[in-house]
Design a protein around this nucleic acid. Sequence first.
RNA 1: GGAGAGGUGGCAGAGUGGUCGAAUGCGUCCGACUUGAAAUCGGAUGUACCGAAAGGUACCGUGGGUUCGAAUCCCACCCUCUCCGCCA
Length: 425
Amino acid sequence: MLDLKLLRENPDLVTQKLAQRGGNYDIQPILDLDQQRRDLEQQRSALQARGNEVGKLVGQKMKSGSKPDDSEIVALKEEGNQVKAQLADLEPREKEIKAQIEALVLQLPNLPSDTTPIGKDETENVEVRRWGDEYKPSHAVLPHYEIAEKLGILTTDRATKIAQTRFVALLGAGAALERALIQFMLDQHIAAGYLEVLPPFLINSTSLTATGQLPKFAEESFKCAEDDLWLAPTAEVPVTNLYRDEIIDGSQLPIHHCAYTPCFRREAGSYGRDTRGLIRLHQFNKVELVKLVRPETSEEEHQKLVASAESILQALKLPYRTIELCTGDIGFGAAKCYDLEVWLPSGNTYREISSCSNFGDFQARRGNIRFKESGQKGTQFVHTLNGSGLAVGRTMAAVLENYQQPDGSIQVPEVLQPYLKRTIL
RNA sequence: GGAGAGGUGGCAGAGUGGUCGAAUGCGUCCGACUUGAAAUCGGAUGUACCGAAAGGUACCGUGGGUUCGAAUCCCACCCUCUCCGCCA
């Protein structure tokens, strides 16, 4: 959520920054409502002040012996009733306007960082670096879903019987490989100082609003019919919300978490794309990194977060490139974002395997996550960051392709061998 | 699912209609005493909004209601705990 004060004091800057995302954002209606709100608030609180005064006077007079039907008391009560009547008019109006402002502001995306490259869409993203040699063996590399079915470690047909399309079931070595990847990623991040969290996978609306999935992107998540609960679309939501409505002691910062969760996404509007394999599923596993940090450190923490995600790909020896998203392509709540794209030889392309975003104070405002430096007065919003470290299914796909041997077997990446206790799948 | 208890400031815990943003204790911060520390003593110590400021307003789980006046009374909801039932 953007700072209303910033909108008020610097509307041109806000408008200009929002325009960098593309699309039209008119903040004038919000500013008008805000002015109305402040006028109403002043009227209201002046009335309340008089009402409080009247109440006190009655109390004092009663205590010093006045009777309820003394003319003085009757007059005060009458005034009290008038105040009440006026408030009954003002209060609902103020409330209504506040709700309107809130609804509008929640729809506004974050301002891109000054360091985010300006561009209209994904074609203007910037490649920052590449790592590893693209695997281009002389033999053909089967797409991961074909080799996996062939090895009998993946079934999509049977999984759709259980659920529907875009679900898979892993068998034998496939299930073991998925588990090994999760375990390896967590171990690596824990060793780097991230504290593991295993959060709830069902999440209430307030939490989804805080991190920005609601109200705009309701159609992207699965909702439980009988309850105000949604299936987690990413661990970002529960882990960030661990601290919602809290004032964190400054000495606790920075907070670094890693979390494995399944993630559930409706993938509305992507019907024709990636219909096979592990790339785009309604349910997939992910290890997520989440940070809550002081504002002045967030840029540095962001770079380190990206490095943490990259370290997994490097340890697995999977070639990748790092892309800095431009203003037209960054997500709703992000101020700045890097995507990691892993090499998939079957398609001769790179595919997104991680997205690492700095949200600035956008989520912290929505979730009211603040910190207080001891000795200093006042509170500040933390900055929140998160990134995949990594999407497990896509990592499995990358392993199945980048480690595919001429005979169709899969070599187990060295770092996973202790987990899988085998060298070949 | 049934029965009961309860939600007050960083924590503990008073407060059942009037000047209560809220006693007291602990904690924390500042100061005094001390070579230093402990102990002791004195003071301070919530958040947010509006306002140039002075100051004002709101907040005792949430939302309504009664009243001149609500932490306190009434209604609804949410959450927590205990016991019973069911259950991995």
